[in-house]
Write a protein that binds this DNA or RNA. Structure first.
Lengths: 207, 207, 207, 207
DNA sequence: AATGAATGAGAATTCATTCAT
DNA sequence: AATGAATGAATTCTCATTCAT
């Protein structure tokens, strides 16, 4: 490698990272819009301006980007989630923190690509469950388990609870993103209230 | 048309209906197992013993069966749901009735094909939302609206509420189906309790 | 199935068989011209006038046609070969019979498609070994073994002998096909003579 | 150009040659293992430690290395072959010498990379004819012609003879390489015996 | 020269849909 | 109507070759 090349290695490496990330971002959008099956590799790379070949330089298969997407989302969200877990003094504070954190996370994500959310409902009315959510499921479940273990929350059916909470967060989160502007705090209040105290705990609207 | 066919015009008509239903049932199973994209028309007709050509005699496209499936599920479930609505004296009774009815409905549906639920998670870990649920969404939303209108429930964000309730019912329902035997009443108690009174309202487990 | 359909079943079945054979024949030609790797499925079906899809109605993969080709060639040649084996009174008569039969076989095959032999050397100078020959290899080897067992031929290195004989038959056979007209008997005499008595046993040419 | 490079112009030239040869050697191995079509340029350069780009500095295309390989093999083998021709007093001695030389040549070549010969049959059961052999064909043919011209061998069909001899040498040679250890002399005796005197001239085995 | 990322034509295969029988 | 072979667009992935650094 020549001296010049050595000096430029940084720039090269930078481009590679940027491309890798660009593909990941495009994949997130496209999978989000069309679902795993319907989305094609061409759909993904079209958004990056790269070539089909380039895609396969970065990911070995369509399946691999999908997995990477889950890893990526989970890797970035998990620490946030865990921080809430550590901060929490009781179940209520954990739940409120976790859900708010999640909604803020997806709003931030959404900003990056957003705009074409219109297509969403239209294109894939039957595909859901983001890779991120899937990856986080176990995290949530065991956080709940731990909280109950410590007597900070009533002992209830853990699988149902985790399932229900994730379902609420996922779908209300998605609903929130459709609003302009999306109100993470409001949505979090709604979900937390519902889970903790049921209908009675949910914020009233005056309208 | 052969002589025999002419003589059996009535039976013919019957067969037509039976075939139409057979395809619909097969489609429900197959879409359930594989998801819309992964499922093929051949997968569907294979279960009916009919031919590919016959499929297109009854439905114009793969998409159309899917839509018909939603209609079918909704058509059969909607009256049940509405009966609960009429029976209900307050929001609580409506909710409990509706959810219990839904869970019993899907348990019954499940019996028909079931068994290969194992494939499910494996085959399409990221595709959900049964056609039935989708079709019922508006129904539920307007039932909630009506209930609130009548002052039987606190005024809250309706879209969030409908979304959350459907999310819970869908996912906890799915979770319930994995258990052996599936306990519709128990799951309904869980969901109703959660929605009405939050965590505190959820049945305890002793374990 | 209607009466008409029943009556036509024969014609249908006939077409299917014809297509299957057409694909096989096209595959033989194309693999012969281009070699397995270079030949594409489209190359094959282009010769049949069918569509890509039709190819996959008859064979599950490119690999499968290749295998079928071997089976086909072997299935048709093996009985001929075996007949020679039974007819033979000594090694010499077996060898002469077998080689002559082989040459006549490939001349006959060649007639069917022929013509584009010109491409051959040009297109794939480095790919050889027809599927047929490969399938027949073991047959030949065990025939040799049997003959030696019975003391009808000297005991020599069997693998070398089978290899050498097949090599000669294959390549001289190919050479013969290039000539116009191909002289199966002459080529067979050459090979038999060479194998049995060496150079001295080979027919002289006057030129 | 860096200072160091300027100082080492001579070494540079040397490196160029070494790289060229390294690529050629790698190509021989890889083509041998996988066949021309299956082998990729990356397969080749991977063995050299060079980069894809470097490959194209030395050879304009995959096809060109293949041709160069033939040239190379031929260039190295031809003198050996010709030496045998000059040494020979009659056809017998020429043939024995040539074949033995060829077998020793390929055994030596094989030593260089060898080991993974197992893959061979597995990877490309239907592709053969080393570039070397192809390049030598004419050489052999004209040597035979010359020998016959001089009355040292009976006049026979020259094309058939050259074809047959090369076929035998190629395939028995390949067979020999599979044995451990490969016995060049034994295989040469076999082939020479067969070609000169036929079956009767082939070494007996006792077993 | 060397490097290795980028390119894009092309390969095998699938599958919704059509259509002759 | 029923049948199932035929169609061909579309999909994933590969790989020779080019090109910016």
């Amino acid at each position: 490698m020549s001296e010049i090349a050595l000096l430029n290695a940084g720039k090269r490496e930078q481009t590679k990272l940027a491309n890798r990330q660009a593909i990941l971002d495009a994949a997130r959008t496209v999978f989000g819009e069309l679902g795993y099956e319907t989305a094609t590799v061409r759909d993904i790379i079209r958004r990056t301006g790269l070539s089909v070949g380039a895609f396969y330089n970065y990911y070995r298969s369509k399946e691999e980007v999908f997995a990477a997407l889950a890893d990526d989302g989970a890797r970035r969200f998990r620490p946030i989630l865990h921080a809430e877990f550590l901060k929490a003094v009781d179940f209520e504070s954990y739940l409120r923190g976790a859900i708010k954190a999640y909604f803020e996370f997806i709003v931030a994500e959404d900003q990056a690509w957003a705009k074409e959310e219109a297509h969403l409902a239209d294109a894939a009315p039957y595909a859901r469950n983001t890779p991120e959510m899937m990856a986080v499921h176990d995290e949530v479940r065991s956080a709940f388990a731990s909280v109950m273990e410590r007597g900070l929350a009533p002992r209830v059916d853990l699988d149902y609870l985790a399932t229900a909470c994730i379902a609420i967060a996922r779908d209300v989160g998605e609903e929130m993103l459709k609003r302009d502007p999306p109100d993470a705090a409001g949505a979090a209040d709604f979900c937390t209230g519902l889970i903790l105290h049921g209908l009675a705990g949910v914020p009233r609207v005056v309208r």
